[in-house]
Design a protein around this nucleic acid. Structure first.
Lengths: 168, 168
DNA sequence: CCCTCCATCGCTATATTGTACCCTAGAAGC
DNA sequence: GCTTCTAGGGTACAATATAGCGATGGAGGG
């Protein structure tokens, strides 16, 4: 793992709180059951803006005296995915909270290889370019995975011009 | 696994042959060593247009009397990736041959969930939309993963389920 | 109120995918 | 001839994910 810096100076506690509140609302509306376990897993995913592995969550769950097993975590993650509360980052085998879960969508992600932060985009131009390209060859689009690896403004800025200046 | 249909009526033998020939040329130009093993792995990746798992390759290699071990395959795959001869499909943990390896690039893929075929795109509009979106927030773009799951023209057409506008 | 149904979760075991590490052979350079 | 480096054989293990079975407890019908 590369060095990690805080993604930004923001009040992350309120990030978490907002996410949990919104999740409660959404689940209530849909009649989906946001159980204690699912809520806790969602909270753990939101621990930071860095995607979290299923087994990291597993360890954190174990911290409270009870030992959890993989299926427990994967089932909770599946529920959260189905309800659009989190996204899976395919290229990292990890999960990240969705900042706007009201309307389910395929996420677009900027993944900083220096600080690990995942930033979700919702760029219409990308969406329509993808839709057009698919349409042009008669492909019916389902879920779209877009993951862009690189350096976030913060990390790229610190490194100045040379792209490899950040390497260790 | 869903049903698989042949991706198309094309002369796949010549696909493979072309890919191998081009690989030879490229490696010769670069002074990279396309050894027997690497060539065989490339050939196995090109067995079809469906992404192939590392352990599938491993089994196929074992077929000739010698038993291969995982690192053998992964090392060969790493070489092929570095030289742009194959791409990794993150959402499937699998590999597919690159049809235009002369100029290394991040691939854009249409993945049919019915027949399994991976079709590589090189769409400039998508590329520039991604570049602009990243640029706008000061993100320095590295590798881009774009994987679109859905139904290819063939499978969507056959499914009769209201195929909207067979573009063309 | 009781009872059935079924979603949820605990748990064991196992499958799948990917790496660390050590060693040998043979080519490349001097 | 000797060193050095790349490629690859092989074991062991790490990391990620799923199959399947049983227990529990709440929701709703009788």
């Amino acid at each position: 793992m590369p060095d990690r810096r805080p993604p930004d100076d923001h009040d992350h506690a309120s990030c978490i709180e907002d996410a949990l509140t919104e999740a409660e609302t959404i689940c209530a509306e849909r009649g989906a059951r946001l159980t204690d376990l699912r809520r806790r897993v969602l909270e753990l995913v939101w621990t930071s803006h860095e995607p979290v592995g299923a087994y990291d969550i597993l360890s954190s769950l174990g911290g409270d005296g009870r030992r959890a097993a993989p299926p427990t975590v994967y089932r909770a993650l599946e529920f959260l995915l189905e309800n659009g509360l989190i996204h899976r980052i395919e290229s990292l085998n990890a999960f990240v909270g969705c900042p706007s879960p009201k309307a389910p969508h395929s996420g677009q992600f900027l993944l900083c290889t220096a600080c690990g932060t995942a930033t979700e985009l919702t760029d219409g131009a990308i969406q329509s370019a993808v839709a057009q390209a698919a349409d042009r060859i008669g492909f019916r689009t389902g879920h779209v995975t877009l993951e862009i690896k690189g350096l976030c403004r913060h990390c790229a800025g610190g490194a100045a011009a040379a792209p490899r200046a950040h390497a260790h």
